[in-house]
């Protein structure tokens, strides 16, 4: 653990278990997952389809609840929160980027970015927002509606929104899954720079070893369990690991 950038946890899961259905149809989407995401870390989560990656993201972001175990964001244990407080936690302390459909179609790019602050009734830190927009390269497109933006631009807006509140942690579920590799790489470098320059914590699900190599840590999930982990991965190392896991 000495080579980690920081040792303060931004979020962690303890014995996280999620069971869908019961009896014959029971599915253990998460099976006692223990994981810690340290501040300023960029973690990639990989694993075969159906291994529980999305479920882990949802449960950690407070979008879904666990059957058993606990998720802690910063100092807050999610199981102690009411539905409303969970919402507020998502608004203020967690960022989320989905694979697609991240934006409200009726709002412009900038309005989408400041949406969480608007919802909170707080005034956005204009300097920070400008800096984020500058970094993603959206400066001249802020007043456009989502349907006037390309898929890559839309994802950048979504990442900007996640960054805009300076949350404790950002979860991204296959953020580049719908993009070509060039556009995907742009997004990934942008996320990388958010980690390097702003010390943002990011957890990202991906199927792409190249994408995973942007992270400084890769976690492998199979059948709802963490089976392995890589530090400072290269695409080849990730590929080898994936092969060895079958």
């Amino acid at each position: 653990m000495t080579d980690a950038p920081s040792t303060t946890p931004a979020a962690r899961a303890v014995g996280a278990t999620k069971i869908y259905g019961s009896g014959d149809t029971e599915v253990r989407a998460l099976d006692g997952v223990d994981v810690t995401f340290n501040k300023g870390d960029f973690t990639a989560i990989m694993g075969p389809s159906g291994s529980g990656k999305s479920t882990l993201m949802h449960c950690m972001a407070g979008l879904d609840d666990l059957t058993d175990g606990e998720v802690v964001i910063g100092e807050t244990a999610l199981s102690t929160l009411s539905e409303k407080d969970l919402t507020l936690l998502r608004r203020d302390n967690v960022g989320f980027v989905f694979q697609a459909f991240n934006l409200v179609p009726t709002l412009s790019a900038i309005e989408n970015i400041t949406l969480p602050m608007d919802l909170a009734g707080t005034t956005p830190d204009q300097g920070w927002v400008d800096q984020v927009i500058e970094t993603v390269g959206l400066a001249n497109r802020t007043t456009h509606r989502p349907n006037e933006l390309s898929g890559g631009q839309q994802q950048r807006v979504a990442v900007s929104r996640a960054l805009a509140t300076r949350p404790e942690i950002i979860f991204a579920d296959e953020p580049t899954g719908n993009l070509d590799s060039t556009t995907g790489n742009e997004i990934l470098s942008f996320m990388r720079s958010a980690v390097d320059e702003f010390g943002q914590t990011i957890v990202m699900v991906t199927h792409d070893p190249a994408a995973a190599s942007y992270a400084n840590r890769v976690i492998f999930l199979v059948d709802g369990k963490i089976v392995d982990e890589l530090r400072e991965p290269t695409p080849d190392a990730v590929l080898d690991m994936m092969k060895s896991l079958g």
């Binding site: 972001a61 979008l63 539905e83 409303k84 919402t87 507020l88 998502r90 608004r91 203020d92 989320f96 989905f98 459909f101 991240n102 934006l103 409200v104 179609p105 949406l115 969480p116 919802l119 909170a120 929104r161």
Partner: peptide, 16 residues
Amino acid sequence: TRELGLVRAVGMTSRQ
């Protein structure tokens, strides 16, 4: 529905 779910995910409370 999807859009409403999204704004809920990024922090709109049910009262809002």
